[in-house]
Design a binder for these strands. Structure first.
Length: 490
RNA sequence: GGUCCCAUCGUCUAGUGGCCUAGGACGCUGGUCUCUCAAGCCGGAAACAGGGGUUCGAAUCCCCUUGGGACCGCCA
C-alpha cells in the first residue's frame, strides 16, 4: 500500500521553521515511498483563523518546493462530514450531548486548578435522563457533543520515533467532539479527516503525542481500530534560548528567510539536518534527501535552529549554484529592495548579473549581501567608505595611481583580462621599484570605494577599461584636491 | 499540580556494550596562502547532566535525581 501522509497547518500564524520541517519530513517520506502528500488546513477555530495567512503558507511550501498531491482541503468546508460521524457516535452510545455552559465549566476548571488537581470534565451530562435533556433543551441550551471516553485501561501509542508509549485512560476526560455551534474540535476533526483521507502515517510535532491516545480511542469507537495510522512524533524546533520559537526570536517564518536572501535549498538542507542525520554528511541535494531520509533515523530530542549554520549552508549553495539562476535572483532582490531602478536593471544584461555572482560568491553569504555588494560593479553609484578613503586615497599616493592609470591606458580594452592585467601592472610596478602590496589597496578603494573585495585584477576585468580609467581619474583628482592646500601651506 | 516526552562539545549531530584516550559539521581560535577581505588548506580549545546499579567491560541497558519541553480548552 502506498503511504498517504498529510501536513495540516492551522492558518493562525505564518509557516515557521518548525512547521516547515514537519512538512518537509512528511514530504520526504511521501516522495521516498512514492506515496501521496496531502495538504489540509485545520481552520475550525473561527476566532483565531486568519484567512489572509493561507496564501503565504501555500507560498512558503511552494518556495521550498514541497509540492502536495491532494488538497488543499479545508476543515471549515467539511462540517457535514464531522457531524455525520458525531451522529454515529451518538447513536452508538459512544458520545453524548453536554448542556453545561461555558461559565459552569470554567468555574469547575478554576476550582480544580485551585485544588491543584488535573482539570477534568466531571461527567455531569454523561448520563442525563431524557427528562433532564428535555428541560435543558427547553431552556434553549445548545448542547455540545462529548466523547464517552473509557475511564479504565490503557491506550498504547506505537510511535515510529518514540517507541511504545503508554497512557492511562483514567487520565482522559470526556472531551468535546462538536462545539455547541456544531463545529468540530481539533481531536475529532483530525481523526475524521485522517480516516476519510486514508492517512497511513501521521508525522507531526511532538506536542501532539499527548493527543494521540484520544485519537486512537476515537478510531476504535468509530469501529476503525484496524485503520489506525502509524504515528511519528518529531521533536520540536526551539529558538536559541531553548524556548518555543516566537516573534521575539527574530526571523522564524519561512518567508522571512526568503526576504533575508536565504536560498530555499539551504533552508531545506538545514531543516532536514535538524533532528535527522545520515552519518557525517552535511550537504544534501533534494534527491539525496529523498533517497536517504528515514523516520527511524530521526533523533528524538528537540533541536535549536542555528542561524549561523544556515548561513554557512547558504554560502555553500551560493558557491555551487548555477550563476545564471543566482544572477536572476540577485536582480530580483536588487529591484525589490530598490537598490536598482527598473530602468537600470533593464539596461544591465543578464550575463552581467551572473558574472557579478561569480565575482562575489566567495565572500557573500546571502542574496542580500550579494545584491548590495554587486552595486559598485553594476552601476556607477559608488559609495566610498570614509575610512578606506582616509587611509588609502591620500594625496601622496596620487602619483602612484597616476602612473598605474597611465600604464592601464596603454592596455587595449580587449586585453582587460585578469591574467594580462596582473602581468602588466606587476611589471610596471617593478620598473618603479614597487610591489603590488604598495598599490593594490589604493587601487581597490579607487575602483570600488571599499577596502575588501574580489581580487584587484578580477575587479578590473569585470569593470572594463572605460570604468577603470574613469574611476582612477576621479580618485586621482580627489586626492590632488585634498593634497593641494597642504602643499600650498607646506 | 497531573500525565507524557527528552538529555553527547556553545549549536546540529555520529555513536545502538568492547573499534571511544568519544568522530564529523557550524561557530570560536592558531597557522598557511595572499593585493584586501573571503574562500581553500593544516592545527587547536570544546561534550557523554549527576548518582546508583547490571556487566569482565557502559556514552550505549535499568533505576533514581536534576534539568529542559509538551499537553492537561466548546485552541490547534
Amino acid at each position: 500500500m502506498k503511504p498517504r501522509v498529510r501536513f495540516a497547518p492551522s492558518p493562525t500564524g505564518e509557516l515557521h521553521v518548525g512547521g516547515a520541517r514537519t512538512a518537509l519530513f512528511n514530504w520526504l517520506f511521501a516522495r521516498k515511498h512514492q506515496g501521496s502528500f496531502i495538504l489540509r488546513f485545520e481552520d475550525t477555530d473561527i476566532e483565531r483563523n486568519r484567512p489572509e495567512l493561507i496564501e503565504p503558507i501555500l507560498e512558503s511550501l511552494r518556495w521550498l518546493g514541497l509540492d502536495w498531491d491532494e488538497g488543499p482541503f479545508f476543515q471549515s468546508q467539511r462540517l457535514a462530514l464531522y457531524r455525520a460521524y458525531a451522529e454515529r457516535l451518538l447513536k452508538a452510545g459512544q458520545a453524548y450531548r453536554c448542556y453545561c455552559t461555558l461559565e459552569e465549566l470554567e468555574e469547575k476548571r478554576r476550582q480544580a486548578l485551585r485544588a491543584k488537581h488535573k482539570p477534568k470534565y466531571d461527567g455531569h451530562c454523561r448520563s442525563l435522563s431524557p427528562a433532564e435533556q428535555k428541560r435543558y433543551e427547553s431552556e434553549g441550551r445548545q448542547p455540545a457533543v462529548r466523547f464517552k471516553a473509557p475511564q479504565t485501561g490503557i491506550t498504547i501509542v506505537q510511535d515510529l520515533i518514540r517507541g511504545r508509549v503508554e497512557f492511562d485512560n483514567s487520565e482522559l476526560d470526556d472531551f468535546i467532539l462538536l462545539r455547541s455551534d456544531g463545529r468540530p474540535t481539533y481531536n475529532f476533526a483530525v481523526v475524521v479527516d485522517d480516516l476519510d483521507m486514508r492517512i497511513t502515517h501521521v508525522i507531526r510535532a511532538d506536542e501532539h503525542l499527548n493527543n494521540t491516545p484520544k485519537q486512537i480511542l476515537l478510531y476504535q469507537a468509530l469501529g476503525h481500530g484496524q485503520a489506525l495510522p502509524q504515528f511519528a512524533h518529531v521533536p520540536m524546533v526551539l529558538a536559541k534560548d531553548r524556548t518555543k520559537l516566537s516573534k521575539r526570536h527574530g526571523a522564524t517564518a519561512v518567508l522571512e528567510f526568503r526576504e533575508r536572501g536565504i536560498l530555499p535549498e539551504a533552508l531545506l538542507n538545514h531543516l532536514a539536518r535538524l533532528g535527522w542525520s545520515y552519518g557525517d554528511q552535511e550537504i544534501f541535494s533534494r534527491a539525496e534527501l529523498i533517497e536517504k531520509f528515514s523516520l527511524e533515523a530521526v533523533h528524538p530530542a528537540a533541536a535549536i535552529f542555528d542561524e549561523e549554520k544556515l548561513l554557512w549552508l547558504n554560502h555553500h549553495y551560493i558557491m555551487t549554484g548555477d550563476p545564471k539562476r543566482l544572477g536572476r535572483l540577485v536582480c530580483e532582490f536588487a529591484l525589490e529592495r530598490g537598490l536598482l531602478s527598473e530602468s537600470e536593471a533593464k539596461s544591465i544584461p543578464d550575463e552581467r548579473f551572473s558574472a557579478v555572482v561569480a565575482l562575489l560568491k566567495e565572500r557573500k553569504r546571502s542574496l542580500v549581501e550579494l545584491a548590495e555588494g554587486a552595486l559598485p560593479f553594476l552601476t556607477d553609484r559608488l559609495e566610498y567608505d570614509p575610512k578606506a578613503v582616509e587611509r588609502f586615497l591620500t594625496a601622496d599616493r596620487a602619483a602612484l595611481l597616476r602612473s598605474i592609470a597611465d600604464a592601464l591606458q596603454r592596455v587595449a580594452a580587449e586585453n582587460f583580462r585578469t591574467s594580462i592585467l596582473e602581468e602588466r601592472v606587476r611589471v610596471h610596478l617593478e620598473s618603479q621599484g614597487l610591489t603590488l602590496k604598495d598599490a593594490a589597496q589604493p587601487c581597490r578603494v579607487a575602483l570600488t570605494g571599499l577596502m575588501a573585495g574580489p581580487g584587484l585584477f578580477e575587479t578590473m576585468e569585470f569593470l572594463g577599461k572605460r570604468r577603470v580609467i574613469e574611476r582612477l581619474e576621479w580618485a586621482i583628482e580627489k586626492m590632488r584636491q585634498m593634497g593641494d592646500p597642504l602643499t600650498a601651506e607646506g
